[in-house]
């Protein structure tokens, strides 16, 4: 006699469910109007930069390869990362509640944390597509003026940008898991990244003369700083007559730590909140 002991139905492991959710969520993202709007914004910024640099040939851009990448990249990359984070993460979780798409997914044998992570992965990949487009245009322009000899600092800056994107999406997902309405969570994250954080940073560092080590935007400055030669000093004091004025630049390791910490804390909190929230 043969005894079969097959479980009723083997539900896939969470990792494989995560892949499934990310795959379909990404399909949904890549077909959304939002994705095309963001891509268009990125292409417009890239096009403007290309045209302005080609026409005016500003010396800051064209004196050295590092100067080129520093100016080009420094001008737009953080905005593109922030916009991606807001577009793809701003209502990722709140939308599940508000639009009731959660009722379709959550009643399945899948952990909520898997859904959260799958959606996060999809938002990350969609953002990478936009970010990648900007990177390609940047490098193409750099190659046109200076050949394919890309300074190694640009590689670092690229890696820090990806880390910044990861932490931005961590934060936007966290906010989207708090709010009930998608448009409010989008608005809150937009205000936070575009106004509140930069403003706080300048208040803290310029007025209070304190190091804003607790701000993600401060940590993210390593993206631009690494393209400066030499790397700016951590603490810079300038004597202006009788007042000393201090500015701060996050060292690379501090910057990495700040961004990683934002991501880890927000991801953990966001998952816990999503896991406990009622669909009602």
């Amino acid at each position: 006699m043969r005894i079969e002991n097959v479980p009723e139905r083997a539900i896939p492991r969470s990792a494989s469910q995560l892949k499934t959710i990310a795959k379909y969520e990404l399909t949904n993202y890549l077909r959304s109007r939002r994705f095309y709007v963001l891509l268009a914004i990125t292409l417009i910024i890239s096009g403007l930069l290309t045209a302005v640099v080609a026409y005016y040939r500003p010396s800051g851009f064209l004196s050295s390869p590092l100067g080129f990448y520093s100016s080009w990249w420094g001008l737009a990359v953080t905005y593109i990362l922030i916009l991606s984070g807001i577009f793809f993460g701003g209502d990722a979780i709140s939308g599940e509640f508000q639009n009731k798409t959660g009722y379709f997914l959550v009643v399945n044998p899948v952990k909520r944390s898997t859904i959260y992570a799958g959606k996060w992965a999809a938002a990350f990949i969609a953002s990478l597509a936009v970010f990648g487009t900007f990177t390609v245009v940047t490098v193409a322009n750099g190659a046109y003026y200076f050949g394919l000899d890309v300074p190694y600092q640009f590689g670092l800056s690229l890696a820090f940008s990806v880390l910044y994107l990861i932490s931005i999406l961590g934060v936007t997902f966290f906010f989207s898991s708090i709010f009930k309405s998608g448009s409010i969570s989008i608005l809150v994250t937009a205000i936070l990244f575009l106004f509140a954080l930069p403003l706080t940073q300048s208040l803290v560092s310029n007025l209070a003369q304190m190091e804003p080590w607790f701000l993600i935007t401060y940590g993210a400055e390593i993206i631009g700083n690494v393209l400066k030669d030499p790397y700016p000093a951590h603490i810079v004091t300038v004597q202006l007559g009788r007042v000393t004025f201090t500015t701060y630049n996050a060292p690379i390791l501090n910057g990495i730590a700040i961004m990683a910490a934002y991501f880890l804390v927000c991801a953990a909190l966001g998952m816990i909140i999503f896991d406990r929230r009622d669909f009602s």
């Binding site: 379909y24 949904n28 993202y29 009731k100 959660g102 379709f104």
Partner: peptide, 10 residues
């Protein structure tokens, strides 16, 4: 449960 929405672009 109730009338769920489905991801619109799928």
């Amino acid at each position: 449960i109730e009338t769920p929405e489905i991801y619109p672009a799928l």
